Simulated assay, not measured.
Amino acid sequence: MPRPHGFAYTTHADDTVTITHHSHPATTLRGPRADQFLTEVASGDPQLVMARWTGNYKHGNERTARNHPRNRP
Rank of each mutant, 00 (worst) to 15 (best):
G6P: 06
R33H: 15
T27I: 10
P25G: 07
T16W: 14
A34M: 14
H24T: 15
R63W: 11
R72T: 09
Y57E: 13
T39L: 04
H59V: 15
N61H: 15
F37A: 06
G60N: 04
T27F: 10
V49G: 07
F7I: 10
G6T: 05
S23E: 09
A34K: 00
Q36A: 15
P2W: 11
T10W: 08
T39S: 03
A8N: 01
G44E: 15
N67P: 05
R30C: 10
N67R: 14
T16M: 08
L48W: 04
P25Q: 08
M50V: 02
H21D: 00
V41W: 00
Y57T: 03
N56F: 06
E40F: 09
Q36P: 02
V41T: 10
P2H: 12
A65K: 09
V49W: 00
N61K: 11
I19W: 02
R30K: 08
D14S: 03
R66L: 11
G55N: 13
V49L: 06
T54K: 09
N61T: 11
P2F: 07
A65I: 12
F37K: 02
R63D: 15
V17D: 00
R33D: 05
V17K: 00
L48F: 08
G6S: 05
N67C: 07
N56T: 09
P4V: 07
P32I: 11
R66D: 01
Y57Q: 09
M1K: 04
I19A: 05
M50G: 04
R70M: 15
H12A: 12
L48G: 14
G60K: 04
T16A: 06
H12S: 09
P46V: 06
D45T: 09
Y57C: 10
S43A: 14
T64L: 13
P25C: 07
V17A: 05
P32W: 13
T18E: 12
P46R: 06
H68G: 08
F7Q: 09
A51P: 04
D15S: 11
F37V: 01
F7N: 03
M1A: 09
G55E: 10
P73M: 05
P69G: 00
N71K: 04
